[in-house]
Amino acid sequence: MLVIENLYTCYGKVQALKGINLIVNKGEIVTVLGSNGAGKSTLINTISGLIKPDQGSIRFCGEDITKVPPHEIVLRGILQVPDGTAILSRLNVRENLIIGAYCRKDRGSFKEDIESVYQRFPKLGERKNQIAGSLSGGEQKMLAIGMALMGKPRLLMLDEPSLGLSPLLVSQLFRIISQLQQEGITILLVEQNAQKALNYAARGYILETGEIILSDLASNLLRNKKVREAYLGEVPPAENETRET
C-alpha cells in the first residue's frame, strides 16, 4: 500500500533521513521505533508532504505521491495524527470533528459518522459543545483520533500517540488502535513505547539517526537482544557486572 524507497530528507540543515526503505501492506499495523531525534517525526511528516524529500520516492496505492502537497495527500486517504497538540484548541469538539471531515467529498453519512465517533468515545459526546482546549490530555488524544476517523483514512499514521498518557489510557489507546485495524484501516505507528507497539504491530522498523538499522516481524524484534537492551529497558549482563564491582 505504502512503498518508500531510498528516502533522503533534511530537517533544517540536518540530514534527518538517510536512505529509508519501508513498506506498509494493506491492513497491517507497522511500527517505527526510535529514540528522540532518530527522525521518526521527519519520516511521518515527509509522507504527509509537510517536508519535501531531497531524494527517493514515496508511492501510495501504486501512485507516486513524493511531490504532492499535504492537503492532496490527505484527500488520497493518508491521515496523520500529529504528536503533541493534535486538535484545534479554540474550536469546540463538534467543530473539530466537522473539520476532520473537511477532506471528504461525500456528505451522505456525515452526521452518522459524528455519532459513531461519540459512540466510540462517549466522553467526546458529553462534551461536544466544549472548547477542545479545555479537554484533558487523554480526551484530546481521543478527539484527535476521532478527527482522523472523520476523514475516512485508508492509512492512518500516528505520531507517538501514547506520549504523556497514563498507563491506563495507553492500554485503552492500543485497544482502540487494534480495533481500527480490525475495521480495515492500515496503521503506521511511530512510537517510543516499544513494548506496547511491538505487541500490537505485525512488523517493526528500528530507526537510528536517520537510518533503518533493523526491520523484522514484531515477534522477532521482541526477542532480539539488541532491541531488548536499547528499547525494552533490559539491562545487559555485562553492564550489570561492572556496576556491581
Binding site: S48, L50, P69, P70, H71, V74, L75, L79, Q80, P82, T85, A86, I87, L88, S89, R90, L91, I99, G100, Y102, C103, M147, G151
Partner: peptide, 13 residues
C-alpha cells in the same frame, strides 16, 4: 488561524 500545520494535515488547502 490556530495552526497552518495542523490545518494542512486535515486536508485544508
Amino acid at each position: 488561524s490556530e495552526s497552518f500545520r495542523r490545518s494542512r494535515l486535515l486536508g485544508i488547502n
